[in-house]
Design a protein around this nucleic acid. Structure first.
Lengths: 231, 231
DNA sequence: CGGTAGATCTCGCCC
DNA sequence: GGGCGAGGTCTACCG
């Protein structure tokens, strides 16, 4: 990984055009040829960048560019598309190289998959007498997160989200439409379960007869921990 | 901006838990207290990070940590949530500080707004005799990208996307349902216009009587340039 | 490889 | 500040 601090101007040309005027920035060149242009603020997204795989070529400025104060011109060309990043370097304040090696990578806990596992284990969160049929119930248009039966043994399709948005309601609606064509399953009702449900999503869901349930992940994890400790 | 190259292990605790085992990485500390942990590959997304505003505190390792080889413990605490990033530093290979100042920021060209402006100007792209009613036609459930009239003076709602996905078809369907309740507008037909339309989205749209139109942005921009040159 | 859905999404707009 | 939609989204997963 090469780290360069320099005053520079940047141009991206590809799916769109994006330009950065002259300022001092960090240029990060990774081993796969990708380049990130970072300022001293904002979030983790760079101001401008080139995705891997890419090739960085450095060139001398022509006479006109040199007259403007450009000392070096970088051209970062993506190897799979015609996306290109052009960086005009003016003053270079820092330039260092570091051997990092391959990263062992990130492990996560607490994403939708965990929520799904917990809800499947604690299916009565949805109501007394509920039983699990199966997780990731496959249909022609994709997997239903959880299929269950209610106390009256009627089929219930559950769509699970961390944040309940209109998209999720549409998704569940499509599943319900399909499942209700199956005489062995029909009538199938829907439950939209999420840690947080947006007001507009709730209105749309309830308008379509879909029940909304907000989940408390911490409480569910707590129950999970207690149960785990029993074994 | 502070740049540190160090062997380290990282723990994020917040909306989820995410851990990184011991490896050599870049730690970028920005002026707003945010921290990015980058490896020498992947894309622009860091392996782990803390969003601003945040506060970095550095502490000496306790006896047990020191015995493991930890030389320094960073705690990066978000100032608005209880998200926290903990970094155990082992060997530090590089540590430098740089004054970057505020960045003037990025300017873009070629996003959906441009596409919408071009299509509004060249509304006959959709068919002979088409006329523009208005862009961003407001409804109770959001703005219709473009409202137009066809050659027979019937109302047409246009949903515009760079990439035509199922979501866009659902969105247009909701608008059409609403607009067709208005006797002054009904009957309203739909056009789904995008630079690229996914097969499944096309099938869904046509099944609902929505016409699909793929747009050539470069050609439209070319016409725009030619027209601009006439003035 | 393409298609779908999630994300500690981020970012920008509008109310 | 919240809600909503777009993104050069990126990323994992599944066919």
């Amino acid at each position: 990984m090469r780290l360069v601090i320099a005053t520079c101007s940047v141009l991206y040309e590809g799916r769109l055009r994006a330009t950065l005027p002259l300022a001092k920035r960090l240029l990060m060149v990774k081993a796969d040829g990708s380049v990130l242009v970072h300022s001293d603020g904002g979030s983790y997204k760079p101001l401008n960048w080139m995705s891997p795989p890419a090739k960085l070529r450095s060139a001398e400025p022509d006479a006109e560019q040199a007259a403007e104060g450009i000392t070096e011109v970088w051209t970062v060309q993506n190897q799979k598309s015609d996306d290109r990043l052009t960086i005009n370097l003016f003053e270079v304040e820092h330039d260092s190289d570091h051997e990092l090696g391959v990263d062992p990578g990130l492990t996560k806990d607490g994403v939708e998959a965990d929520l799904q596992r917990l809800l499947a284990e604690q299916i009565t969160t949805l109501g007394d007498g509920y039983t699990l049929v199966r997780r990731e119930y496959m249909t022609a248009i994709g997997p239903v997160d959880i299929l269950a039966k209610d106390a009256q043994n009627a089929t219930v399709a559950v769509e699970l989200k961390r944040r309940g948005d209109i998209d999720g309601v549409e998704q569940l609606t499509r599943y319900l439409e399909l499942l209700n064509r199956d005489p062995l399953l029909a009538p199938v009702t829907g439950v939209f379960a999420a840690q947080q449900i947006k007001p507009q999503a709730r209105v749309l869901a309830e308008d379509r007869g879909i029940r909304c349930v907000t989940l408390d992940y911490d409480a569910m994890r707590g129950i999970d921990d207690v149960e785990s400790r029993l074994f």
